[in-house]
Simulated scan of single mutants.
Amino acid sequence: METMNLPLGARLWIADAPKDPKGMILICPGGGYQWLSPREAQPVAHAFAAAGWAAAVVYYTVREKPGQPPLGTLPVRQLGEALQTMQQRFPALSALVCGFSAGGHLAASLGVHWRELGLPRPDGMILGYPVITAGKYAHRGSIENLTGADDPAWFSLEKQVTADTPPVFFWHTVTDPEVPVQNSLLLADALSTAGVRYEMHLYPRGVHGLSLATPEVDEPEKHRVADPHIAGWFGQCLEWLDILKTTKE
């Protein structure tokens, strides 16, 4: 394991890489752009590493107090820098981004805005219950921490998808009370319209923030308990990754 401080202010935690990794995955934990969830960070990296993938966690800048300036594009530029750093370390490997909740918004932001910002394009995106829209179904706290009172349209990612957006695997619970499932539905519609390949899984019940949905990330006081059915997302994701490696876009 290794930790690196990057020039734009993010910290990169790199898990021990397996021998001959299949590719690399950068993980963005959620937390409403206000804090970073440990349950969506290193446990996820360890799971991908155990499955044969090089994995790292990006501890990006957050807005801890409302009085602080909004974050703007800093987190996505930090993620782009982290991706470039990992590409230099593993130049022959495919490079994907993975994020949960607001971290899903961050990962998807790189996926839709990479060209405009002059950042490296990820080869794929893995999103768990992602914040996507700045519209009717927005997670307001996340959007406000990015934009303050400014026009949030640039951060409404369903409006930014193009044919250059990388393939996506994503999942959501239909009963998510914090980030409505409509975020994923809007993303699916935008991806379909743009002709971008994706795989989406919707689970009928479950609270927000389930992470791997395994016993190691249980948080019973918030009703986040292991659920074997929802935990299946990880195995389905690994299958999707294998297909992605053998199929051209």
Rank of each mutant, 00 (worst) to 15 (best):
E2H: 12
T3E: 13
L6E: 12
L8P: 03
G9N: 03
G9K: 07
G9L: 07
A10S: 15
W13A: 10
D20S: 14
P21V: 01
G23Q: 11
G23Y: 08
M24G: 00
Y33P: 01
Q34P: 00
L36Q: 09
R39E: 13
E40C: 01
A41Y: 02
Q42P: 01
H46L: 14
A49T: 13
A51P: 10
T61L: 12
G67D: 15
L71Q: 12
L71P: 05
T73H: 14
L74Y: 09
A82P: 00
F90D: 11
P91K: 03
A92I: 05
L93H: 11
L93S: 13
L96S: 08
A102L: 09
G104L: 07
H105P: 10
A107L: 09
G111M: 00
G118Y: 09
R121P: 02
I126D: 04
I126N: 02
L127W: 03
P130K: 01
V131S: 08
Y137P: 02
Y137G: 00
Y137C: 05
A138W: 04
H139R: 03
H139Q: 01
R140A: 14
G141C: 03
G141Q: 09
S142I: 10
D151R: 02
E158R: 09
Q160Y: 07
V161R: 10
T162C: 10
D164W: 09
D164V: 00
D164P: 02
P166H: 13
F169C: 04
W171C: 11
H172E: 08
T173K: 08
V174W: 10
D176L: 09
P177I: 07
V179R: 11
P180K: 11
P180M: 03
V181D: 07
V181F: 09
N183W: 02
N183F: 02
A188D: 10
D189F: 04
L191C: 09
L191F: 06
T193H: 11
R197L: 10
Y198Q: 11
G209P: 00
G209C: 05
G209R: 08
L212H: 05
V217G: 02
P220Q: 04
P220F: 11
E221A: 14
R224D: 01
D227V: 00
I230E: 01
A231F: 05
G232C: 05
W233A: 04
F234V: 07
F234A: 02
E239L: 14
W240I: 04
L241I: 02
D242Q: 14
E249G: 06
